[in-house]
């Protein structure tokens, strides 16, 4: 039986998502650069993962059980604003540090840097590398008999990178059922619709053909995300959740608009957006 979240809790989490979205936009506005579209599409998934599903320790190495944590890799490193907002919410660092995002000397680099910020497993930003990293971590955990999951978060445009499929083939061959990949399927990339730029086709069928267990979910429905993660927890194969999302989710003028992939809002945009996210 899959566990459901109580309605009250879902409400609360939706409010957290709104807060995180506001923070993402303030960070990007403050930095005068960043990636609002793919950050906003990721918020609900990261919210559920970090607050309900993953075993993780915001005090990092100070925690004796740190080695048993579930691992998270933001393969689409450009959604860093979303990750930082969620990490601050969980207590990895103070929320006021979010406003140093992308500034000189900040631990919150444009794309995540593991040598600067505790809690980042590995530096990412160049697309197509996260799934292989996840395979390596999964192999290492298996050797050490550590029963943790490796969550890896990919963009749908990122699936155009061939190296993703090298890793997908290897994960199935090595039977790495401790990997849970999540695809942020917002259907847009910088130059437009993925189906126009280079059609990825049927993502579920592609992963299945590579020997994966693949399911789909609504990436903005808290309870659906929560349940889909439970579904793949005991998968015998590596598993992927294809999360249908909306790029720019939560801000009417950013939704489904590729122009907001990598553009900061101006003061007026920010004011309007924050109004919608009240």
């Amino acid at each position: 039986m899959l566990k459901e979240l109580p309605t009250e809790e879902i409400k609360e989490m939706e409010n957290v998502s709104k807060k995180l979205r506001r923070e993402v936009l303030q960070m990007i506005y403050n930095a005068k650069s960043g990636h609002p579209g793919g950050s906003l599409s990721s918020i609900d998934i990261l919210n559920v993962l970090f607050t309900k599903c993953m075993k993780h320790f915001p005090d990092c190495e100070k925690n004796k059980e740190y080695n048993t944590r579930d691992r998270f890799i933001l393969s689409k490193g450009h959604a860093s604003a979303a990750l930082y907002a969620v990490m601050a919410h969980c207590g990895y660092f103070k929320e006021e540090e979010l406003m140093t995002f992308r500034k000189l000397g900040s631990r919150l680099q444009g794309h995540p840097c593991s040598n600067k910020l505790n809690g980042i497993e590995v530096s990412t930003g160049s697309l197509g590398q996260g799934l292989s990293i996840a395979c390596g971590i999964a192999l290492g955990l298996r050797l050490d008999n550590i029963n943790s999951k490796v969550y890896v978060y990919l963009g749908d445009g990122e699936l155009e990178e061939g190296s993703v499929w090298e890793a997908a083939m290897n994960a199935a061959h090595k039977k790495l059922n401790n990997i849970i990949a999540i695809v942020d399927n917002n259907k847009l990339q910088i130059d437009g619709k993925t189906k126009d730029v280079k059609d990825i086709g049927d993502i579920k069928a592609k992963f299945e053909a590579f020997g994966w267990n693949a399911i789909e979910t609504n990436g903005h429905d808290i309870n659906s995300i929560y349940k889909s993660i439970q579904v793949v927890q005991n998968s015998q194969k590596p598993a992927v959740i294809i999360a249908h999302t909306i790029k720019g989710k939560g801000v009417s003028f950013m939704e489904n608009n590729p122009n907001w992939h990598g553009k900061a809002p101006n003061e007026d945009d920010l004011r309007k957006a924050l109004e919608e996210l009240k």
């Binding site: 197509g128 590398q129 990293i133 390596g136 290492g140």
Partner: peptide, 12 residues
């Protein structure tokens, strides 16, 4: 490519 990044993951 998979070789190098899988190696990276193991090092993690």
């Amino acid at each position: 490519q998979d070789l190098m990044t899988t190696a990276a993951g193991l090092a993690c």
